[in-house]
Design a binder for these strands. Structure first.
Lengths: 279, 279
DNA sequence: CGCGATTTTGACATTGCTCAACGCAGGTGG
DNA sequence: CCACCTGCGTTGAGCAATGTCAAAATCGCG
């Protein structure tokens, strides 16, 4: 993971409902048809038409999907479906019934929790391949909202539940994802608890830089599609502060703003020092 | 969980070693004798003498142990061992080989991570029943240090590994513990990112108050064995600030300091408002 | 080109930190 | 048994970092 991802899991400790039984809730994907206990023929038929999508998928080797060999992909295709979301649209909403689990295919989502008085704290940004919407209880524990036009692939909770039962390998994958979450959460705690504004911004950029493309001289060029307000919401800072820090880093020659929403890191070493990276 | 607990897990995604094989490392408990592949007789013998400890244990119904019925407790006893630690002693050390997993039997531990320059952030306090030292990789990802004289029960990693393989029920328990962790971590993120000093202190006291004993009028009396410095390390505040906030709460009649290190919460409602509890 | 939203910049306010002094308690040694 | 010492907590004064508010500049988009 990089800058925090999704936050929690589902269908393991099913809140207080049985896995089987029960009618399909009306959530997203409810019309995909029967998935878990589908009669063999119907299932195979569905797979035949469905197979290509997961196989060709941009994030086929990320997230949950990476845990399945190509031969088993059709089963995933059968319970999943793509959906486009525009910037500002929500994929999951804190407190609502967790009907589906989503893999981000393209774009970027912000993951946040809200205090009763309206203050909100962003706990992470999801990048392609990240999984969001895993919930231990019956409700989503955070809101996931697109900050750029995005595509998500939704898997019905019940369908995924059944799939996990049949493919123990998925369970291990879920576990390591959960563990990665926890690590990310703790890094954020460390950041919010100990670091000053400059250190926070550098930590954030550095995390993004790891996955970012490099220019011809090997300098990472980070893409920041989110608003300053969201960046601040993640770092525990106000947008004005972010702006000031970036200006200061630019003045010192550590970064260059190239295209809009793109920042090139010019001095990676000094940057690492400022980020006070753990080990 | 209450105020954060342990932080991560082990033996699922074993870093890059196989579960079986390999000599017992020299860590704590190495002298408990063979545990996993013990010949039946030896094992039963060990159980016979060992059984009573876990059965009588103060935290028998907490943490991992709660997942095992009384009849299976001897197996737990066989791979575990109690150890007393004085205030200031460390149970796990960030970055060191994760040889064992510990259940806190009595006392209190602080869990913290350290930045390269020495700043440290406490990510939680463990109370009896909490499990610390679960590590996904081969090393502990945090330091656990006693803040009061404590007793921990250590389980050899390999022994626990084998036990989890034999008792699938333990796996579910580990999962829900991990999920509780994550929830606690996110609450802390919310706190560090959004709340001011007073709100943080109230949030903290309120979390402790849930588990705290009540006086004859039903008011919770919270025990705070840790130093102000540690409390501050958890809340992202300096000890002077904690002191000032407590003084101010006292002046307002919201709390009363009873015995040393004990605080009674007099006005739980107002307190809850100040804590800005999620939902 | 022009509108609305976002970002930037500046001036100022506030919060919590720093530093220092003092007090209190527990432990130690005479 | 008492004096001292050390570490922690408390309190105060001043300060630095960041938040707040407002205005100007810029961007994205039609």
């Amino acid at each position: 993971m990089d800058v925090g991802e999704d936050q929690s899991m589902s269908f393991f400790v099913e809140a207080n409902g049985q896995p089987g039984r029960g009618d399909d809730r009306q959530g997203f994907l409810a019309n995909t048809g029967p998935h878990v206990q589908t009669p063999i023929q119907t299932q195979l038929q569905a797979q035949a038409q469905a197979a290509p999508r997961c196989l060709r998928c941009a994030v086929r080797n990320e997230g949950l999907c990476a845990a399945l060999p190509a031969g088993e992909l059709p089963e995933l295709t059968a319970i999943s479906r793509n959906r486009d979301v525009g910037a500002g649209e929500m994929v999951t909403i804190e407190g609502q019934d967790a009907d589906a689990v989503f893999t981000l295919v393209s774009g970027m989502l912000k993951i946040y929790k809200t205090l009763p008085d309206g203050r909100e704290q962003i706990t992470g940004f999801a990048t392609p391949g990240d999984v969001v919407g895993l919930a231990f209880g019956s409700c989503y524990v955070y809101t996931a909202e697109a900050v750029a036009p995005s595509t998500v692939c939704g898997m019905v909770r019940r369908g995924l539940h059944g799939l996990v039962d049949r493919k123990p390998r998925l369970q291990g994958r879920l576990l390591s994802m959960l563990s990665a979450e926890l690590t990310a959460a703790q890094d954020q705690i460390l950041m919010l608890g100990c670091k000053n504004a400059t250190e926070r911004v550098c930590t954030f950029l550095l995390a993004l830089a790891r996955r970012a493309p490099k220019d011809e001289q090997g300098r990472p060029v980070v893409f920041l599609p989110m608003k300053k307000l969201d960046m601040g919401g993640y770092l525990g800072l106000r947008p004005e502060t972010i702006s000031r820090v970036l200006r200061s880093l630019e003045t010192k020659g550590l970064i260059t703003r190239t295209r809009s929403a793109h920042i090139r890191i010019d001095d990676l070493d000094t940057f690492g020092d400022l980020a006070v990276a753990a080990e």
